[in-house]
Design a protein around this nucleic acid. Structure first.
Lengths: 215, 215
DNA sequence: TAGATTGTTAATCGATTAACAATC
DNA sequence: TAGATTGTTAATCGATTAACAATC
């Protein structure tokens, strides 16, 4: 069992680091670096090497070779599989304002296994249009499409005031994971995954750091 | 000293929670709730009450009253002060693609004390235009404007490949805090604050949760 | 007064880092 | 072979939670 990937044992903090590993590995793979040590990854990303080694051990399907490390391409494949980037998830997005438009247009999502199937809005001026080839539909159509395509991921990019309402509608339609860009706290059932993208919190962290440096 | 706000003792995790407290307090303040207990905040946000009490203790300028708690408006003012939302920071943004445009147009930033002074890009088709009343300028103009307005915060919203270059240019111009939306690891000097907005990592966390729920 | 809530000290929990034997 | 790197066990560190006396 030692080397089989194990979801249970991976902490959130560790999981957060995996995409960075993957990016680094893809970079050196492009440079035709065939094997890579955890020490090298740690150096490249300014992390502790033991930490990297433990994280990689949970993800890699094969043991690393002393002196050589891991085969770059194998490790990339293992990480992509672990992160679910290898099989595409469909998602919908509700709210096609500035941020919503940007997210629909964000081509990189396909690299992460995310495909935005459609956008929804209540604003007549965008309904019926296409953004990045994705149809923007009326909010009424949301439940039916979610059910028909068996979509599990919903992205919320509406103003804070409508956040909870949209979340409730998504849950009612069968959405099981909500990625919340609205600046508000959402209450969702325990069996629905929720990830808040709190730009205010990020900004607070940054300006606090800035303040400390200045002192 | 017990009740004076103290930057040093605040952990990153705690700091991350403060904006949520502030949002909650503003919400109940609108409902004319005059005093609030940490227990109530904890219940409202589904957090542990001792955790909230400790966080609030580090931020509040006055002690809470047993049985009543804190004066809502006072606590809001203390939080805004602590988070630096009361005095405006100027910032610039480099990269006026989809995400960059959305960020420039994001009105809520002003609520967080952030004012985007200008956007920069290398693309002639956007240079000279205005987005949300902010001028979009040629990248050449960036160092001069940063120095003249003494701007300390830079937002990076360029493709991953140009991320490091832009970061270097910002640092050279005197930027002391970088908010990085480009999907790449950045190397910056130790005296420059860096906050990565890693959408890939967020998405990974969400889809992992989704996977675990499904099993 | 009684009891809800405070601030604080101690216990627990989890994650990071250090140390080290195994090995290609 | 020698030494870089592995995987793992133990020590440290920090954050969360539990317990409790003080008090309005």
């Amino acid at each position: 069992m030692t080397n089989s990937p194990n979801t249970q044992e991976m902490s959130k903090a560790a999981l957060n680091r995996l995409p960075a590993y993957l990016r680094y590995l893809k970079k050196i793979d492009k440079q035709d670096v065939e094997t890579v040590s955890c020490t090298a990854i740690a150096d490249g990303l300014h992390l502790n090497s033991v930490q990297v080694r433990k994280d990689i051990a949970l993800v890699s399907s094969v043991a690393g070779k002393p002196k050589k490390g891991f085969v770059t391409k194998e490790l990339i494949a293992d990480l992509e599989k672990f992160l679910g980037y290898d099989n595409n998830h469909d998602a919908i997005i509700v709210g096609v304002g500035g941020l919503g438009k940007a997210l629909i247009g964000y081509a990189s999502f396909s690299n992460y296994g995310l495909n935005i199937a459609a956008g929804f809005d209540v604003n007549d001026s965008v309904i019926g249009t296409f953004i990045n080839k994705k149809p923007i539909l009326s909010m009424d159509k949301m439940p039916e499409l979610v059910k028909r395509l068996n979509i599990k991921i919903g992205i919320i990019a509406v103003p804070a005031a409508s956040g909870q309402l949209v979340a409730d509608q998504m849950v009612a339609a069968g959405i099981k994971a909500i990625w919340n860009f609205a600046n508000t706290h959402l209450a969702v059932p325990d069996n629905v995954a929720l990830k808040n993208e709190d730009l205010a919190a990020s900004l607070a962290l940054l300006s606090m750091q800035l303040k400390n440096f200045a002192e």
